[in-house]
Design a protein around this nucleic acid. Structure first.
Lengths: 354, 354
DNA sequence: ACGATCGCATAAACCGATTTAGTAAATCGG
DNA sequence: CCGATTTACTAAATCGGTTTATGCGATCGT
């Protein structure tokens, strides 16, 4: 057999099929894309020959001449190894994936190459982008509309230029803080999300959640929380615990902006001999599936991550079809009270939980 | 400004840059890819003009003429929403991602479109594929080498044609079963992985693990385990628990082929009033990060998932460079004993754990 | 029997890059 | 000062498809 021997596979092109079937390239193309424009007999012959030869249209050639690649890109602001350590992304991809499959689209993950998202964007052959957590003034976004690729932002700031999918971060954060304050906590600490892409500024999400926490705390007349920034991984959560002041200085409750950090923090606290929630209350954010079966199960702010992915994909697909769409209302967040929170140590009455 | 009004963005092409700079297309191409072939002055002028115009080479055009897309594909045998519910995939992607970033490659997720992986493969513009859990005789693989795209198999059967990355499933399973048997269990049940892609046959991984379980059980002279097939999700694990016989018929220990199923099963068991491990021992497989902080922490077989991803990517990249590579030895699996296993109910002595 | 219509198939242009083969001018050695 | 290189650049071919405009013979209405 005439198989190429590693590295030089001979691709069957449309011209080969045309020759073998004794027709023009046009006919072959029609056979696949406009069958009704061919006669019965020819159609069947061409299709037969194509199948025998194992013909498959070259995706890049197709993309070039059709001006669409059948792929949507996910713009990821951090290294894949970092970002996939957080189930948040998995869930988002579940949502995106659902719609992609519905519409016969592939999903391209686009992390920074060589530290540069801009470079990675150029390399990516996609019909549209979903961008995760990029501030609306990020350089990468300028590149995007210089090229004119439709884009939907997730977890960003509202901006006129493109649709943004957000959840009610502020409301969720407020509910979380209020929950702790109602239990009697006065000494809180916040574990914030790290800025992405080596920027100095907080992510839009962080800003909104901080805002929510602070507003609830002020309303209750408690003192401002100290803020520690930590990654969204278990290890980072553990480090955050270490960074907490010890002894009487230690806050009695923690507001974490991600479940992963909360889980890591709880583990570290437990290893240090603290009981959660008796000695330390912790509330997370996201409600990833795992938070239901940790020990103790995590009190957290639920955001509909899968739905967020679905919505973003749906909007993007609309935009790719040329329809103009505007940003939907932020999705609801809700406080899920489990067992990682209770009254601060030293309070008298035991507290009821649902 | 001459911006296109939605859906018809005007792309700046290499010809535009060439015109504006008063040079040929070739010169522009050289400016980016062979700068040394241009004079200082021209080089700077071209680069300047290109930058001002916001020129970006069209990825598909580039891919077509260079015969490489700078992308590797991950062949996923199930729907994305299913597959991303299992952290296993996230971890694998961490490994793959690491090497992709190192080599400036993007990652394309390729799930079955319209139920057909073959179709999805054709649509995908990639330089190589990593295939997850596909049997070596899958139709999809035939398509792959009909086109001549280098491929590395993960979790498949050894086959001469292409490199396969596996872990020691059999050994791990054997260790898991032996652990239970040593504790005195005689009544075991196995929760098997579901076959992928609507096939009837078990996945290669399932076959090897079953083999390991059975061999240990036979060696101990215990009776054959009953086998229940369940998805790799928490919900599926819960269903598996419901499918178990009740009362005295209930096995005293469960061998689950995935941590997710194990976790779901444990939750269901606990909701039904059973104590784990006192009433029921459960051992998982994979050692996903979550298994360390479940309640109780999960005894499981650890496989180096991230490493598996790295290795697969490394081999694929080798193959893409034209080097021939053969399958590496299976990666080691090790039993991690935590707290979801103990002696069967009715045993006298309490058991020590590490 | 004749121009109009229809059905089927094709030639050639095009998508936007890279690359090969080559040309004209500048530089070199002797 | 002349032939041989080198340097700096370009025209045209190529990658592998889709699409537009068109040709040609058979059928139709009258």
């Amino acid at each position: 057999m005439p198989a190429a021997w590693l590295g030089a596979p001979i691709r069957v092109t449309i011209a080969d099929v045309a020759n073998a079937a004794g027709v023009s390239k046009t006919a072959v193309s029609f056979a696949f894309n406009n069958p009704e424009r061919l006669g019965q007999a020819t159609l069947e012959r061409v299709l037969g020959v194509a199948h025998d030869l194992g013909y498959t249209p070259h995706p890049a050639a197709r993309a070039l001449s059709m001006r669409r690649s059948g792929t949507i890109g996910v713009l990821i602001p951090q290294r894949l190894s970092t970002v996939f350590a957080n189930p948040f992304v998995s869930e988002l991809l579940q949502g995106l994936g659902e719609l992609c499959e519905e519409h016969d689209l592939n999903l391209l993950l686009v992390p920074p190459l060589d530290g540069s998202l801009e470079g990675a964007i150029r390399q990516a052959s996609v019909d549209g982008f979903v961008s995760l957590g990029l501030g609306p003034h990020d350089r990468a976004l300028e590149v995007l509309d210089a090229i004119g690729i439709p884009t939907v932002l997730v977890d960003s700031e509202d901006a006129a230029a493109r649709p943004v999918v957000n959840v009610d971060d502020r409301g969720g954060a407020e509910a979380a803080a209020r929950h702790l304050l109602e239990q009697g906590h006065r000494d809180l600490a916040v574990i914030a999300l790290p800025p992405t892409r080596g920027q100095v500024t907080n992510t839009p999400t962080t800003v909104r959640r901080l805002d929510g926490y602070r507003s609830a705390i002020e309303a209750a007349g408690a003192s401002a929380p100290q803020t520690i920034t930590a990654g969204t991984s278990v290890a980072a959560g553990a480090r955050a615990f270490e960074a907490l002041p010890r002894g009487r200085q230690r806050p009695t409750a923690i507001l974490a902006m991600s479940d992963m950090a909360a889980i890591g923090l709880i583990s570290a606290a437990q290893s240090a001999g603290l009981r959660v929630p008796d000695d330390l209350s912790v509330v997370g954010f996201d409600d990833i599936p795992a938070s239901a079966w940790t020990n103790p199960p995590l009190t957290t702010v639920r955001q509909p991550i899968v739905e967020k992915g679905r919505l973003a994909a749906r909007l993007l697909i609309q935009r790719m079809k040329g329809r103009a769409v505007d940003s939907p209302a932020p999705l609801k967040t809700t406080l899920v009270v489990r067992h990682s929170t209770s009254r601060p140590p030293g309070s008298d009455l035991p507290i009821r939980r649902r």
